[in-house]
Nucleic acid binder design. Structure first.
Lengths: 223, 223
DNA sequence: TTATAATCTAACCAGTTGGTTAATTAACCA
DNA sequence: TGGTTAATTAACCAACTGGTTAGATTATAA
């Protein structure tokens, strides 16, 4: 009747991998919804369908669990970027050919926006970090690699030297500004919906429209 | 020796206004630091130097206290905007004269950025709201007026009809995007400082530089 | 001076918090 | 079959949570 591991409670089949993953999924959900301090281990355990103390057995403490969640997201992100963005960025003429750079910038901005939409839990966790001044992230930052970010910054630096990016724009901060526009637009949607009284800004159509506006805004703001 | 109200603990002089203000100040501080759910009433009471139950006596419950904090900020904000921004916005030629509009947009963006810098508690409280999906704000939204926002949106609509704002930019959302750039840049500073390893981005000089970059970015992104 | 209202406080409550302990159960190997 | 190890759990703990209660202290008006 029941597959191994599907039994709940006392006497379930042993399945370490399954348990770890279930806990990680639950943790991602609860951390995204309530932030680090606000997340309740009991809630994570219940969502995962495993006993609370199993969490401490696998991930030491709350912070270790949080780090594990972010690590998994980071790996997925690196994979995504390697597949989609790297081939574009490898083109040497990108930082000298204005049209090519415009296309690249538009693609990258669209991609970033889409990633945040399709992974609202990531977006939410970042929002919580922003609110609490990144104090949780700071404790575990050393566990993550920032190579991709550095590469992107180098690319933008070259483009500015070639005169494609306006001189007043700091290429080192540009990546974060573009990210800020996308992220903060999304987190401000509930507020805008309150101000616009009833208008639905989170429908696929509305989001697509917003995305194109942001792409237009970024390209003209940068170039 | 001691002025009325300065005595602490048992048998202090009665001073309702002073107590209310002390509580409101403490609440603003603690809410900014920990958000609505994370803020502890005990911490607010201790910071204020008054007994916890006095908080409930004056502000009913945690939500009432939060609403009172935001109301005070809102009143200060309305005052500020009326003094600084309204005279500029009243100029009828603003929405037809490109140069005038550019100056206005730059001034408004600078002002917004400066307000967020000079009132980091406001910025933090907004960040907490963004993280928790504005659920606290939504409960008390009816207590605030949105007239200033509506006026600003009307202004931007006129400017677009006159062809000053690029057609792809939605003037209704523009205000929130500009705000998003400023707010999110500031909340991302700790993260950038982690990435840039040691560089100080919150010094007055660095902030001024960032502000001018954002103004440049916004103006070219919009016009 | 005295009654009354306003201001302020100590002590308390039931429910919740992250984390620990020790025991039980299932898988695996000889 | 029996013994070892890893997976899983119930029960527990001290500290803390928003909120209440009943009473003490002070200001004020008569």
């Amino acid at each position: 009747m029941s597959e191994p591991g599907s039994r709940r409670g006392r006497g379930r089949a042993h399945d370490a991998e399954g348990a770890r993953e279930a806990i990680l999924n639950a943790a991602e959900e609860v951390f995204a919804e309530h932030g680090f301090d606000g997340a309740r281990i009991d809630a994570i355990a219940e969502t995962a369908g495993y006993n609370k103390s199993l969490i401490f057995h696998y991930y030491d403490d709350k912070l270790g669990l949080y780090a594990a969640v972010l690590k998994r997201i980071d790996e997925q992100g690196a994979e995504l970027q390697a597949t989609l963005l790297a081939p574009l960025g490898a083109d040497e003429s990108l930082t000298s050919d204005t049209d090519k750079f415009r296309t690249f910038l538009a693609t990258a901005t669209r991609l970033l926006f889409d990633v945040l939409i399709e992974h609202p839990r990531l977006s939410r966790m970042i929002a919580w970090e922003e609110a609490e001044g990144w104090q949780t992230m700071r404790k575990i930052a050393s566990q993550f690699n920032t190579e991709d970010e550095k590469l992107f910054r180098q690319l933008l630096n070259k483009a500015q030297q070639a005169g494609i990016i306006r001189p007043k724009i700091d290429p080192d901060r540009l990546f974060y500004i573009i990210y800020a526009v996308c992220q903060s637009y999304l987190t401000t949607i509930p507020f805008m919906e309150m101000a616009f009284e009833g208008e639905d800004l989170s429908s696929p159509d509305a989001l697509k429209q917003a995305r194109e506006m942001i792409v237009d805004f970024v390209i003209h703001g940068v170039m």
